[in-house]
């Protein structure tokens, strides 16, 4: 508990988490407003449409999480941290937990603000959360943000440089996964198992929250063969393995 309090003081005593939270909220909500506000009879707004902008917030969350680690390397405070807490594993786990918790909160706030905003913009659309799929699609955003934050922290620990870690995360999550689909014959088989595609499966399932439509006005459906529950487990396991590798590396390395 002490270590969690330490990391909470560290995280919240700088301004960047506040800015990142605000940016995540504004960008995601703004994009949602554009999509939902322009929905028409041909493409009516659905619960899935209200969460269309979640990947924008996701990018911001990963920047926040990676920066929380890489700035410690940049400014040398990681050495002060390891000096105060020689057990590097506990120190880094505590840091990851705090960042993941903050990401969860930001994700939930963003998701429900987007949903609430949509009900105001389209009072006649059927946006009520009346199935498990609907609930997962909205409330699951925070969970995906939290797991993505763990991935970003792990990459931050491994790479140690802000620019390097952030470009790696952004290029991977925004470009590499979808480009892999273009590889002939095996591309699609690989893509089915890539983490962010699988995370999408958890949120969207088989499109239950999107009134059964595929990609007309909402996120394209994931190609993952897993059930939403297993998809989340797979995504979380990927993050856990990456974090374990990062912490093992940090223990061996000179700080």
């Amino acid at each position: 508990m002490t270590l969690l309090a330490v990391e909470r003081i560290k995280l919240l005593s700088t301004r960047s988490p506040w800015w990142c939270a605000l940016v995540a909220l504004v960008v995601t909500a703004g994009f949602t407003a554009l999509v939902v506000g322009n929905a028409d009879e041909q493409f009516p707004a659905t619960v899935a449409t209200t969460q269309f902008g979640y990947s924008f917030g996701l990018a911001v969350i990963m920047v926040l999480a990676a920066l929380a680690v890489t700035t410690e390397y940049r400014f040398g405070t990681i050495r002060t941290t390891f000096q105060a807490i020689p057990n590097r594993g506990s120190a880094l786990l505590a840091k990851t937990t705090v960042i993941a918790a903050l990401s969860l909160v930001i994700g939930e706030v963003t998701a429900f603000v987007c949903w609430g905003l949509s009900t105001l913009l389209q009072p006649n659309a059927d946006l009520a959360l009346n199935s498990t799929a609907d609930w997962i699609n909205v409330a699951g955003v925070g969970v995906v943000y939290a797991v993505a934050a763990v991935i970003a922290v792990a990459v931050g620990i491994l790479v140690r440089h802000s620019a390097g870690a952030i470009s790696l995360l952004m290029i991977y999550s925004l470009a590499v996964e979808s480009l892999i689909q273009l590889i002939p014959s095996i591309g699609d088989d690989i893509y089915e198992w890539l983490p962010f595609n699988v995370a999408n499966k958890f949120l969207m399932g088989d499109g239950g929250s999107n009134s059964g439509r595929a990609a007309d006005a909402g996120m394209p459906l994931s190609t993952s063969p897993l059930s939403p529950g297993w998809a989340l487990a797979y995504f979380a396991a990927f993050a856990a393995v990456l974090l374990a590798i990062a912490i093992t590396t940090a223990k061996k390395r000179d700080a």
Binding site: L3, A5, V6, I9, K10, S13, F75, G76, T77, T81
Partner: peptide
């Protein structure tokens, strides 16, 4: 220089004390 530039002197010492 091993201090986060945007953290106050008190906050820097506060987290160290807590740890």
């Amino acid at each position: 220089k091993w201090v986060h530039p945007n953290r106050s002197a008190r906050a820097h010492l506060a987290w160290m004390a807590k740890s």
